[in-house]
């Protein structure tokens, strides 16, 4: 029983991430390295924000911790952007001449965003997963029995969100469009603050808001990456060629 819950939650949370990794990242060594490097940057951002939280006297102000961590995450996202754009010339040398990583401008942002997403998702869920493996289960001492399920759902959304955010954010800096950057920061703050309601188990509100934001960000990043309504319908016609839009 516990294993059922474990696998259900694990696949809910990391299934999409794994699929993206398998189809778009795994075959190219450079992408794997960028993925790991960007997850390392996310780790650094978490390190900074939690050290601030560590010395912060009033531990009841969770709000403050959330804000600082968002601040540091976006700072490090910007750092990753800077580093990747600087090393693009070098990347062109390293990869083969007609590799997708040099021809497509959004590939780097997609890969680094996925790195951010995977590591943040892992950090928020992996301990819960280790707990629900057994021998106990959720909801015994008056706790909510859907705790794990919703955690997994949120994690899945955040993996997506980080990917989309990176695409939008990088494009915002590329095209000097401040609105896009602002959108990323504001939606990040909004989504994270919405999850503060989870303590009161208002899962309905949080889930619906987060899903809406995820879908909006997804559509936005899809358009930024050059997708149109037509290409979206083509995507479902089982032609291999058309599914490489975000790649």
């Amino acid at each position: 029983m516990t294993y059922m819950e474990f696998f259900g939650c694990a696949f809910t949370a990391f299934g999409p991430a794994f699929a993206m990794f398998y189809w778009t990242i795994m075959h190219d060594p450079i992408r794997i390295i960028i993925l790991i490097a960007s997850s390392f940057f996310w780790l650094c951002s978490l390190l900074f924000s939690s050290s601030l939280w560590f010395i912060f006297p009033n531990k009841d102000w969770v709000f403050f911790g959330v804000l600082t961590s968002i601040f540091f995450q976006e700072i490090f996202r910007y750092l990753v952007y800077k580093i990747l754009r600087k090393s693009e010339q070098g990347l062109r040398q390293v990869t083969e001449t007609n590799s997708a990583i040099t021809t497509s401008t959004h590939l780097l942002s997609y890969v680094s965003g996925l790195g951010f997403g995977i590591i943040s998702g892992a950090f928020s869920l992996v301990n819960i997963l280790a707990e629900i493996k057994g021998p106990g289960t959720m909801g015994l001492h008056g706790g909510n029995e859907y705790f794990c399920l919703f955690s997994a759902l949120f994690t899945m959304c955040f993996v997506f969100l980080h990917t989309f955010w990176s695409i939008i954010f990088f494009n915002g800096f590329d095209t000097h469009n401040r609105m896009l950057v602002l959108y990323v920061i504001i939606s990040h703050v909004f989504v994270s603050c919405i999850t503060l309601l989870n303590r009161d188990e208002l899962y309905g509100t949080t889930v619906s808001f987060i899903f809406i934001i995820t879908i909006i960000s997804g559509v936005l990043s899809y358009r930024i990456a050059g997708g149109t309504k037509k290409s979206f319908t083509v995507l479902f016609q089982f032609q291999r060629k058309s599914s490489v839009n975000i790649q």
């Binding site: 924000s49 939690s50 968002i70 955690s151 994270s192 303590r199």
Partner: peptide
Amino acid sequence: VFYFVTRGIVKPFADMLASDQIFI
């Protein structure tokens, strides 16, 4: 570095976030 920092500093923060289901 990451072992000690994570165990000492990040863990309380991450645990708090995970148990309150706050996502960052």
